[in-house]
């Protein structure tokens, strides 16, 4: 293996088992959600029950009953709107915080940087490990969705399924990169994990509440979660503008991480 990628590979090898367990969990999660689809589709009382929900709850859930009763709408409401992104965000924040700050706290950063590895290469390989981890998990989710879609004859196009998975992966990457950048700036993994998690939760809550409270609508403009939901990828397919809206801040965070790690003392008490 090339010396250039040894740290990227190390980041993944340290988590071989975790990646295995997470992949299995994602397969089970997708299977669990899809398995319920035939009942939802065939049971008219489901639509009635949804329509009977209080209005504020429907607004809070951004519920369109008619849409929800379609395969894509069901998938959006049950899996893509929250469950899958949350799993990916949690994993990505953990990985992002551990790559730079976690290594620094564990003392292994000093051993790695004692070798001929530049700080820029270190930061880029840490980002690479985060991207590959998310690509693997997103790929697992996409394959599970495509297979489930075929088996259950849900009639959703493969394109939108792959695109929706990719967007969930990008959303995870955004928060993972945020954690990595905070870690690169501060060298503190607890702060990286905590702050990124707070931003993710605030982003989710803000997006949800902004449907009810007009004064909170401004949150949408800064919420990555809103951008993800607003793209409606499972219905509309992949759109360059939606991808760019997530990708640009990811690149900005990556640049911040590169700058942060390059400028400061490493591993100081």
């Amino acid at each position: 293996m090339s010396a250039r990628l040894a740290i990227l590979a190390l980041g993944l090898r340290e988590r071989t088992r975790l990646i295995g367990w997470l992949s299995l969990s994602i397969v089970l999660l997708v299977a669990y959600v899809l398995a319920a689809w035939p009942w939802v589709r065939d049971d008219d009382s489901m639509a009635e029950a949804l329509e009977d929900l209080p209005e504020f709850l429907q607004a809070l859930m951004d519920l369109d009953t008619e849409l929800y009763m379609t395969a894509a709408g069901y998938l959006d409401g049950q899996l893509l709107g929250m469950l899958l992104p949350v799993v990916l965000i949690v994993v990505a924040i953990g990985m992002g915080a551990s790559q730079v700050a976690g290594r620094e706290e564990a003392g292994t950063m000093e051993v790695l940087l004692g070798a001929p590895v530049s700080r820029a290469s270190m930061a880029l390989q840490c980002m690479g490990a985060l991207v590959v981890l998310l690509a693997i998990l997103t790929g697992v989710a996409a394959v599970s969705l495509v297979v489930g879609n075929l088996v259950l004859d849900m009639g959703i196009g493969i394109g939108p399924l792959l695109a929706a998975s990719m967007m969930a992966g990008l959303l995870g990457l955004y928060y993972g990169m945020l954690a990595l950048a905070i870690g690169a700036l501060t060298g503190r993994s607890g702060m990286a994990r905590g702050l990124a998690a707070v931003v993710a939760v605030a982003s989710y809550l803000g997006t949800t509440l902004s449907r009810l409270v007009e004064q909170l609508e401004w949150i949408r403009s800064i919420s990555a979660y809103h951008r993800y939901l607003d793209a409606r990828t499972i219905f509309d397919g992949l759109q360059a503008a939606a991808v760019a809206q997530l990708l640009v801040p990811i690149v900005v965070l990556a640049a911040v991480a590169l700058w942060g790690l390059g400028r400061r003392d490493l591993g100081t008490p």
């Binding site: 040894a6 003392g107 790695l112 590895v117």
Partner: peptide, 23 residues
């Protein structure tokens, strides 16, 4: 380094292989 922190789950040889690749 003054304090030798390594990868706890690796054995010595795996650590050598990693640093051989890095170098």
């Amino acid at each position: 380094p003054g304090e030798m922190y390594l990868w706890r789950r690796m054995d010595a040889d795996a650590t050598f292989r990693l640093m051989d690749r890095l170098r």
